[in-house]
Nucleic acid binder design. Structure first.
Lengths: 151, 151
DNA sequence: GCTTGATCTCAAGTTAGGTTGAGATTGCAT
DNA sequence: ATGCAATCTCAACCTAACTTGAGATCAAGC
């Protein structure tokens, strides 16, 4: 039995916005970036499938969890058939997201501990403080964003 | 006894870059932003004081710890005489930075826990999952960046 | 005095993730 | 059939934190 596509299953962009909490322009932007591919009416207006609601929610969540749109795109493209993530996919993806969160937490904790050490050490002598004395240890990676502190 | 300013204490921008690990253009950019104020030679070249090394290091560290240039600017301007932060100033500033780091860690931990709950809950039913079901709860704050997940 | 590397200014470009606006169409309800 | 809200495209703008490039000038060694 093939499900017929009821009119109600074709969602215009404004309703998508309302239902996902995103702005219309953001949704268009995601289409530009290849994250969603709505169909078009004869008059060229976007119409989204129900599954796009889930897809867009997924984007929103993954983003909130710290992934860039590019990373989200790859995550979704890695799925078989480029389908909308289902429960099993979600478990796989979220496990990897979890790892990222954990590392970020660990990184911040290291930073906090370093900072604590620095507060306590009567720092700023500029001779012994690792956090406050970058001379002669960096400036060797060329231009662009750099890593700054030494672990 | 007034210390005389030896020639060696006037540092050209290239050497600043070498010694702080920043790029020349970044240092110029910080001057634009009012974070440092080098003196100029008769030929209009920048010359930095030794204390600027510390000042620039401070910028770098605070930035690494998550402050924006604007915040760093205010932090330094809050100091008496807009002087380069000394040990006591550093303790005050770093305590507030520490708070920021702590909140960020707490935020990530909440996120991780929420994610764990979602992985475990056999989610994606789209009926009961708070993380995956944004309908009818948001989209009421107008345009611009939004808060996404509900705590 | 000349050359060479360092520096100067100023404008424009970059990335991410969008927003805003203009001007033209579409689509649904009456 | 018409009116009005929703939608369309495309270009320009936005913030942060810089980088890059062009064309000019400076400083220092020989």
């Amino acid at each position: 039995m093939v499900k017929s596509l009821s009119r109600n299953d074709l969602i215009p962009i404004g309703e998508m916005a309302r239902r996902t909490g995103l702005s219309v322009s953001a949704i268009r932007f995601y289409e530009d970036r290849g994250l969603i591919e709505p169909v078009r009416t004869s008059g060229n207006q976007r119409r989204f499938l129900r599954s796009d609601l889930r897809r867009v929610s997924f984007i929103r969540i993954a983003q909130q969890l710290g992934l860039s749109l590019g990373e989200i795109d790859s995550a979704m493209r890695d799925l078989p058939h480029g389908r909308t993530p289902n429960a099993r996919d979600w478990r796989v993806i979220s496990a990897s997201i979890r790892d990222r969160i954990e590392s970020r937490i660990a990184e911040l904790e290291r930073m906090r501990d370093r900072l604590d050490g620095c507060i306590g050490c009567g720092c700023l002598s500029l001779k012994k403080c690792a956090i406050f004395n970058p001379e002669d240890r960096l400036a060797s990676e060329g231009p662009g964003p750099r890593q700054i502190l030494i672990d």
